[in-house]
């Protein structure tokens, strides 16, 4: 190509052409920005919709002259159809199953997190982490199958006849296995956020690896592990399918893990799965339960996030 045919600055002699830097109307740009903003703000509307809809129906429930807060929180039988409104019949099962789940998942999750973060070689990690990820990715209904048709028979052969076919123990254990990866990965994040210098300080004073991990790193990561624990509880409280399949169907105020009982979530699933007429007390009562669930998990999640944020600021 001939060079003289081209010259970028053909106007170079009058280098200072007049030009206008005034703002241009960029309509397309504004429309796009508005749409993006709407997408961003939609999530707020989802939350508002949840609170509004749950709240509205729950109000209908609590406005029923038959329902009093005293009955709701003060009695232990739940059967709205015949005037029994004791939420404890459902809350007890939620507490028992969640407690068992945490009893299983916290020590196991924490121990595997310590192993992965402090001990495992790069290669071991690359094998072990995906296994935990697979465990985390299995649908909960499959865990339900596993609880009912694998864990329960095994427990039965150990414990014997006192164990009912549907029972909170089996559901709780399997829920613990389900939550394990979550606790493990969150705890691992907390452990690896502890600065190297702290570990080196411990080693330099002649500590062994376990002494360093348990007495220096673990306490330093405690708040992050607390956050993991809280998220774990929140997940256990909200878990539905495992308990719906394996824990039993029918409210039962019992703290004996060998008994069958229905959790708040399990109850919602069973009742809403049947024929349900809108505006019946059965229908509105489900929203009251769901509202309680939502608020409970919301508080737990907020606490956990708050802990994580505070923790992050400390080390970064």
């Amino acid at each position: 190509m001939k060079e003289e045919t081209l010259n970028l600055k053909t106007l170079e002699t009058q280098s200072f052409r007049q030009f206008d830097l005034k703002k241009k109307r960029r309509t397309g740009e504004s429309i796009i920005q508005t749409l993006l903003f709407l997408a961003g703000i939609l999530s707020i509307f989802v939350t508002i919709a949840i609170v509004y809809e749950l709240g509205k129906e729950a109000m209908l429930f609590f406005n029923d002259p038959d329902v009093t807060l005293g009955k709701f929180f003060g009695t232990t039988k739940w059967q709205p159809g015949i005037g029994q409104y004791g939420i404890w019949a459902l809350v007890s099962a939620t507490l028992v199953t969640s407690f068992i789940a945490i009893l299983i998942s916290l020590p196991l999750g924490l121990a595997s997190a310590i192993y992965l973060s402090e001990y495992a070689s790069f290669k071991a990690r690359s094998i072990l982490k995906p296994i935990l990820e697979i465990l985390a990715g299995i649908p909960t209904v499959v865990y339900g199958y596993f609880a009912l048709l694998f864990i329960t028979p095994i427990l039965k052969s150990i414990i014997g006849e006192q164990l009912q076919v549907y029972n909170m123990l089996s559901a709780g254990i399997v829920m613990g296995i389900m939550i394990l990866p979550l606790i493990s990965s969150m705890s691992e994040d907390a452990l690896s956020a502890v600065p190297r210098s702290l570990r080196e300080a411990a080693y330099a004073m002649g500590a062994t690896k376990v002494e360093t991990s348990l007495q220096v790193v673990l306490p330093a990561a405690l708040s992050g592990i607390g956050a993991a624990l809280i998220i774990g509880i929140s997940r256990a409280v909200g878990e539905t399918m495992i308990v719906a399949v394996a824990a039993g169907s029918g409210p039962n105020f019992s703290f004996n893990p060998l008994d069958a009982a229905e959790t708040m979530t399990g109850h919602i699933a069973r009742i809403s799965g049947g024929d349900l007429s809108y505006n019946s007390i059965d229908y509105t009562s489900l929203f009251a339960i769901a509202l309680m669930l939502f608020l409970l998990t919301l508080v737990l999640n907020l606490i956990s996030q708050w802990i994580v944020n505070r923790f992050r600021e400390r080390y970064e």
Binding site: F16, Q18, F19, D20, L21, K22, K23, K24
Partner: peptide
Amino acid sequence: FLQGQNLYGNQIDPVEVRRK
């Protein structure tokens, strides 16, 4: 000022500025 126009004036389009 670029050519008598204040680049931080209200009416100025930053995209135009960067192009110049």
